[in-house]
Write a protein that binds this DNA or RNA. Sequence first.
DNA 1: TAGTGGTCTAGACCACGGC
DNA 2: CCGTGGTCTAGACCACTAC
Lengths: 252, 252
Amino acid sequence: MPMARQEPGSARTPMHMIISEKLRKQIQNGVYAPGDQLPSEFDLGRSFGVSRTTVRRAIATLIRLGLVATQQGKGIFVKPQSKISFSLANPLTFFDSELADQGITGSIQTIQYEPIHPDPEIRARLKLPATETTVYLQEKLILADDVPIAIDLAYFPEAIGAALKDYLHNGFTYRTLAINGYDIESAEGSLESRPASYDARDLLEVPLGSPLLVYHYLAWDKQKKPLVCGETISRADRTYYSVGLKRSQLGI
Amino acid sequence: MPMARQEPGSARTPMHMIISEKLRKQIQNGVYAPGDQLPSEFDLGRSFGVSRTTVRRAIATLIRLGLVATQQGKGIFVKPQSKISFSLANPLTFFDSELADQGITGSIQTIQYEPIHPDPEIRARLKLPATETTVYLQEKLILADDVPIAIDLAYFPEAIGAALKDYLHNGFTYRTLAINGYDIESAEGSLESRPASYDARDLLEVPLGSPLLVYHYLAWDKQKKPLVCGETISRADRTYYSVGLKRSQLGI
DNA sequence: TAGTGGTCTAGACCACGGC
DNA sequence: CCGTGGTCTAGACCACTAC
């Protein structure tokens, strides 16, 4: 029997939406608590009177809303919700203490720290002269309670990168630059959100297409010479950025 | 014939992923330009040798990545990419001129401006005394070139809301507060990203689960008395926030 | 009327987890 | 071994768009 069509005159709401909305409300009302297991796809299909394909579509919606996660061979589980705060003013600067304040153990894994030949966009941001073809790329994974929550890619001009080689393995901070005589005078940044690509999905262990926060930054010294630029890509389900502004900084 | 299983020893990559990745690369390499129509689901299925269900799964991935959009009865089209910048320091303050600088016509539609009885979270943020049970809610839709890109919900203490009743219909800005004698001394905000719910999907015309940027804000006067709080919910595929920081503001 | 995407089915095989 | 989610099929009906 193909397709169970809607009774004439009944609401036009697709079954997969009815199912996902019902489950969503049950999760938000605590019928299913964080960590709880939902009924199996087979059982849900039987109790709603639909095929497994339709149930799977409803579950896919809940995954996209960040409410549940599936585990092959085990089942469907309600995800715990809680976000970690990053400060926009000093990203990753007091990373450890910032997380400690929130009751979380932070750590940084350097994935690579190597000289590379950057693409034109990075060259432009660092205002590299034509004679300089090399920058240092520091790629690191940021973990909270041993769960990856962000990737940071930082690009340093060659001289700075070489000088800081031994200092940056344990994570980058603006302070590391300052201690080594590179004084940051100003910085600019931008915050956007993008859906997770297949690559990001593998690194950050999130569903494909789930929101990621991307923080682009660029810092200069007094002579307006770029010291570092980069981007921090973080799981939007686990992180947010906060900022405080005084009167002088507001555009009033 | 059920399921076309993989040849023994071949890569384990699902067909839907092979298809979506191939189309993704073709889009990024310009084989399909923004605005172009992709082959129909039927044709894609035929050319890849898979069922339409599998093609639809691949297309669903491209939609989640924000690369294409479907139109019933018409086809699958490549989405144009371009983002509008909001300033974090003065959100919505110079909204019109900010967008004009980017070559975009901005407009604001007030959805409602009414006294309401807020939930405890808003009460706490505005530090309402127990005797005050009313705040003004201003809800508005922000359009760029007549396309909705954001929703803003602003909550004012009763006295301020009543005083500004006639001024706020044309959009809220910090400046409106200042002109009327409510001087903002400081403000704080936070930026996060959430997947679009069914409600947000309808208002902002985005796919379910696509990333939204949420900016929470709160502003005080000299006596640390809250003047306004609220949140701006914007389409992450059309907006980003930028911020500039001077040395004194960096945590170095 | 033809073509497109939107929804749904019944059933299949596979890979993983736990008993 | 069984139960779970992961992938896929072949075919159906519907709603919308364009000619």
